[in-house]
Design a binder for these strands. Sequence first.
DNA 1: TATTTATTGTTGCAATTGCAACTATAATCA
DNA 2: TGATTATAGTTGCAATTGCAACAATAAATA
Lengths: 164, 164
Amino acid sequence: MWLHLQLPTVNLLFMKKSPSKTTIQAWVLLHRVHRKLLEQVGLSLKKNELPPLDWYDVLLELHREGDTGLRQYEIGERILLNKHNLSRLIDRLEKQHLVRRDACEEDGRGNRIKITEEGEELLKKIWPVYGQSIEKEFGEKLTKNECSELSHLLEKVLDQDESA
Amino acid sequence: MWLHLQLPTVNLLFMKKSPSKTTIQAWVLLHRVHRKLLEQVGLSLKKNELPPLDWYDVLLELHREGDTGLRQYEIGERILLNKHNLSRLIDRLEKQHLVRRDACEEDGRGNRIKITEEGEELLKKIWPVYGQSIEKEFGEKLTKNECSELSHLLEKVLDQDESA
DNA sequence: TATTTATTGTTGCAATTGCAACTATAATCA
DNA sequence: TGATTATAGTTGCAATTGCAACAATAAATA
């Protein structure tokens, strides 16, 4: 079909370029760092009898939106969680009265999720522990410049594909 | 008890320093990048009907040790997985004849896990897909220097606490 | 408008994970 | 040595996740 084409763009399909040693090293490190940080922070939260990090993520997003709330899919986009699990995560939060599902006026299918007072309070209770954990496991290890540099690099990785 | 002590080391207990904006930004980015990469690679593996990444991680560690194999806890240390789940992950691998549990001579409690021929083959089958995925989602986004710089920074984060 | 297709969110079920309890062996120590 | 404590690994159970099927509504199209 396009096997005979020699255009550069098409050739990319055949290149199947393997990552370099340098790339692989960074890749592995990224995952190790991530796992270790998450493990430490998770431990710290548990030790203080606080809920898992996911809860914080969701509540924080909702807090930022205040009274407008967010659609479920919007939360999903922000914290990169799929809809199935998000639906049930919201269930759990709702059961604890940390969020509310309000009917959605503009779209009969969905609902708007809003944070409650209790949710706000929990958020305030989590932050000191979470924040300190971040500082201890992460912040302290880098200077401010290094931190910015890291962000810069990570942003490049996150950038949308420019390829068509 | 030690409330009245004024030694610097002890004062750290009270500092409860919150992370800076810069720190938080890098922190959030780190997690976003990680999740996105894992999602993409996972999709790519599934599309090619290959097993999840964990399997590859374990098989690779075993491959590196060749005939000596590894104790379960050694695998755990390397891929940062706790023993409960590792035990059952090994079960699954064993059921697929990808690894073998050999009795351990030097320690009657444990066993040595070794990769089988089939395991090696699977490893070879996964790598092209996995490697390309890494290159596409990660390698291509950074120059070689940026990649090294990223590794350097991540290593700093991973470094053991120098605090006593 | 009627029909088709896409999106939003939920639910059932199976697989995986986390936690606690447990067995078996090793290491420590009185 | 015998008793105690620590380590390696497994298992049961509950909670969470992933996947596929589904219902309800919206958007696109004929």
